[in-house]
C-alpha cells in the first residue's frame, strides 16, 4: 500500500499543519515509511517544529535545483518510530516567499510535473505514505498538491464561512480532479457536526475533533501523538489514520 495525502482547507487557521505533522507521526509509529512535505510556500512553518538545517528546501525541488531525495531529512531517530519518518521543509526566508509568489503559470505547470515526479521517486524508493501540508484556499501551490495526491483530507472549522467555502473546494476542485476526499472537523463544540444538509453529503466526515484550549500550545513545536499519546487529539489522529487508510 502506498498513497499520497494532501491536507488542505478552504480557509486559514483550521489546524492543518498540526494535523498533517501528527498524522505523519501516527503512520510512522504504525510501521509505515512516511515522508511529510511542507507545501505552504507563503507561510512555511515546519522550521518551528523540526530543528534541522536542510541542505536543500522543497523550493529547490520545484526549481529543479535538486532531486526530492536531496531535500528530505530522516528524523526517525528523533521520535524512535518503527517506520522511517522523513520531512521536507520549505524555505521561510522572505526572499524565497516573494520568489514563489511571483511565478507565472508556465512555472507552475512545471512545478506540478516536478511534484508528480518527486512523488513517484519517493514511492519507488520505499515510502508508503506521502503527506503534503498545503497552504489554505485556492492557489497554485495548494491545488498542485491536491492534483498530485491520491486523497485529500479537508480540515473544516465549524463556522458558516468555512463550511460554505469547503463546499466550493469539494465541488469545484476535488470532485473535478476525481480525488477521494474526507472531511476532518476541527475545533468542534458539542453536537456541532458538519451540517447534514450540506451539499457534500457524499463526502465522509472521518473525525470531529473537539475544541481544546491546550492544543494550540502543545502542537506548536511538538508531536503530541508521541508526547501525549492518550490525549483526545492524539486519539483522534489515530482514528483519522485508520479511516483514511480504509478509503483505499
Amino acid at each position: 500500500m502506498s498513497f499520497t495525502l494532501a491536507v488542505h482547507s478552504s480557509k486559514g487557521g483550521t489546524g492543518k499543519t498540526s494535523i498533517a505533522i501528527n498524522l505523519a507521526g501516527v503512520y510512522a509509529s504504525e510501521g509505515y515509511n512516511v515522508c511529510l512535505l511542507d507545501f505552504d510556500f507563503k507561510a512555511p512553518s515546519f522550521t518551528n517544529f523540526f530543528k534541522i538545517k536542510p541542505r536543500y528546501w522543497i523550493n529547490d525541488v520545484l526549481h529543479d535545483r535538486c532531486s526530492i531525495k536531496d531535500a528530505v531529512n530522516d528524523i526517525s531517530n528523533d521520535f524512535d518510530t518503527s517506520g522511517r519518518l522523513y520531512v521536507g521543509l520549505t524555505d521561510p526566508d522572505i526572499e524565497s516567499i516573494r520568489e514563489i509568489s511571483s511565478k507565472d503559470r508556465d512555472w507552475q505547470a512545471k512545478a506540478l510535473r516536478f511534484l508528480i515526479r518527486a512523488k513517484k521517486e519517493l514511492i519507488d524508493s520505499g515510502i508508503d505514505v506521502v503527506i503534503l501540508d498545503t497552504s489554505p484556499g485556492i492557489d497554485y501551490e495548494s491545488i498542485n498538491a491536491v492534483a498530485a495526491s491520491d486523497y485529500v483530507a479537508v480540515v473544516v472549522k465549524q463556522n458558516y464561512t468555512c463550511i460554505k467555502s469547503t463546499e466550493q473546494v469539494i465541488d469545484g476542485i476535488y470532485n473535478i480532479l476525481h480525488k477521494n476526499c474526507a472531511i476532518i472537523e476541527n475545533m468542534c463544540h458539542d453536537g456541532y457536526l458538519y451540517p447534514k444538509n450540506s451539499k457534500n453529503q457524499n463526502t465522509p466526515v472521518v473525525e470531529s475533533i473537539p475544541c481544546m484550549c491546550d492544543i494550540t500550545a502543545k502542537t506548536d513545536n511538538d508531536l503530541i501523538v508521541f508526547s501525549e499519546p492518550d490525549h483526545v487529539f492524539s486519539k483522534a489522529m489515530y482514528k483519522i489514520s485508520q479511516n483514511i487508510t480504509k478509503m483505499g
Binding site: R105, D106, Q108, A109, K110, L112, R113, I116, R117, Y140, I143, N144, A147, G172, I173, I176, L177, H178
Partner: peptide
C-alpha cells in the same frame, strides 16, 4: 505559453481532463 498548469487542467472538459491527467502522470 499554453502550459498544462493545474488551473487549465481544471477548466478542460471532462473527457480531455481525464486524458490530460493521465498524460501528466505518465509524463
Amino acid at each position: 505559453s499554453n502550459s498544462m498548469d493545474v488551473m487549465t487542467l481544471i477548466s478542460l472538459p471532462e473527457h480531455l481532463r481525464t486524458t490530460a491527467t493521465t498524460l501528466l502522470k505518465l509524463e
